[in-house]
Design a binder for these strands. Structure first.
Length: 472
DNA sequence: CCTGGAGTTGTCCTA
DNA sequence: TTAGGACAACTCCAG
């Protein structure tokens, strides 16, 4: 009982820089203990396989940054805190807020309980604007992005500037769970390969940001649509895990904007705005992960076809750009945004499978799997969301491939079995004449599949299904 | 209350 | 070849 300290509880803020809770504690306490709890008790859905891997490496990185002082537990936070409180003198417990419905519920109860025993504080460490601050004049939440961002966010306060502190770590002697005991890492080949594409941790997020602001941003507006170009930041996993703060990115963009007034920067900022919008939707419509935001879609005639779903997951639909995307996802834990839309649209509007099946697969495979962004984006693609793509907007995977991967570099990288086809046939391998395919020993239906469905036909079927919902 | 403009990311047909 | 309009109608949002 002679040990005295304050606790910072790490959650989705796995960084030391611009961490509001850490800043606050450093100003008010001499001894700080940093804690992480792997909570598999409260979530309605467990972490996906990719997320677990990312978390494993993130905790290792964070622990090193903290001189091996990161205290780790597994289980229900209430139980864990209750034990700590009964064994040590805790001056204060503090954390940065999370916004997932299950976490809000958990933290609310927990806060009431903890407040009986110590002081508790929470901060905004992952959003530019709090979802409860950005409301229409009548007090209700926005459902359309443009007014949400332009009228709501931009007319509200400027996001606060990033701030760092000197951490006063307390060299505690409390027994921590070993990171390996959390069993987040995997021995599967998949896991070993997927991780090679990333450097996980706060310092690498900063490196990526700097590279992006030196080069990628310069043609961001156009280049971000081309999966083979290096114009996207690829910071989404780091943002999700809090290894970089949105405020750091926002103000980095503002700084650059002072030197050059550029629409690329404005568009990058608005992409951060989309992330805010998704969190706002999740906060105000907490059933977003499981229920159509537009109720009329509850009656939509989704099909159930395990065979189609399996081909989609494996990247064997016969449409090269879709298959390239699905394989990029499997091989790297990431998929380029443009291709996410194409692959998503294909699942929902050509295969007519429920968006929730796609949402769950992405949840399992993406390093940036995020409750808000993943759910809201799938609802957008499916047309079931508030501010969704209109139902007649069905991506044509052939046209999209030609338009956004004109030299098929992205396709060739992930679908190497068709790389020798002449560019003329690479977007439609089934149209390659026999003499041409023979000359390169390529056999359609053997080396690469025939299309799983026909585009024109499946498009019309979808339009018909969607129009059956009219005036419901 | 009423009014009117607008709505991330597309496709297809026609002139 | 290319640019423009239809697609279908609704809800959102602000004045």
């Amino acid at each position: 009982m002679n040990e005295e300290f304050a606790i910072h509880w790490f959650r989705q803020d796995l960084r030391l820089n611009d961490n509001p809770s850490l800043n606050y504690l450093s100003k008010n306490h001499k001894n700080i203990v940093c804690l992480y709890i792997y909570d598999e008790v409260n979530p309605e859905r467990q972490l996906g396989a990719a997320s677990k891997l990312w978390l494993h490496h993130s905790l290792n990185d964070l622990n090193i940054a903290l001189d091996n002082n990161l205290l780790i537990f597994k289980g229900n936070p209430e139980k864990i805190f209750s034990e700590i409180l009964s064994n040590y003198k805790i001056k204060e417990i503090s954390w940065n807020r999370c916004y997932e419905p299950w976490r809000i519920k958990r933290d609310k109860t927990l806060k009431i309980y903890l407040k009986e025993n110590t002081s508790v504080n929470s901060f905004n460490g992952s959003l530019l604007w709090e979802p409860w601050d950005i409301l229409k004049n009548d007090g209700s939440p926005y459902k359309v992005f443009t007014p949400f961002y332009q009228r709501g966010c931009l007319k509200f306060k400027e996001p606060k500037k990033p701030e760092n502190c000197k951490l006063k770590l307390y060299n505690h002697k409390i027994k921590s769970t070993d990171i390996n005991e959390l069993e987040l890492n995997t021995n599967r080949t998949w896991g070993k390969n997927i991780i090679k594409h990333w450097k996980i941790g706060e310092s690498h997020a900063e490196e990526l940001m700097n590279t992006f602001f030196l080069s990628g941003i310069q043609d961001y507006s156009e280049g971000r649509n081309f999966p083979n170009k290096k114009n996207v930041s690829r910071l989404s996993p780091y943002l999700h895990w809090g290894q970089i703060s949105p405020n750091t990115l926002w103000h980095k963009a503002l700084e650059l904007e002072k030197k050059i007034d550029d629409k690329n920067i404005e568009i990058f900022k608005s992409e951060l705005g989309w992330r805010e919008f998704f969190y706002s939707l999740m906060y105000h419509f907490p059933k977003i992960q499981n229920e159509n935001l537009q109720k009329k879609f509850d009656k939509f005639p989704w099909e159930s076809n395990d065979h189609f779903f399996s081909l989609w997951k494996k990247g064997l639909t016969g449409y090269p750009i879709v298959d390239a995307g699905m394989r990029e996802l499997w091989q790297t834990g990431y998929m380029h945004n443009r291709v996410r839309m194409i692959a998503g649209s294909f699942l929902v509007k050509n295969l007519l499978l429920h968006w929730n099946t796609g949402e769950k697969w992405f949840w399992d495979c993406l390093f940036d799997a995020d409750y808000a962004s993943n759910s809201a984006s799938w609802q957008w693609v499916a047309g079931t969301g508030t501010d969704a793509a209109p139902y007649f907007r069905i991506f044509n995977p052939i046209t999209q491939g030609k338009k956004f991967d004109p030299n098929a570099e992205y396709i060739k990288k992930y679908v190497p079995e068709i790389k020798d086809l002449p560019i003329k046939y690479i977007f439609t391998p089934w149209e390659c004449p026999k003499d041409v395919s023979n000359s390169i020993s390529f056999r359609i239906g053997h080396d690469y599949p025939y299309p799983v469905v026909e585009i024109k036909e499946s498009r019309e079927k979808a339009l018909k299904a969607f129009s059956s919902l009219k005036s419901m």
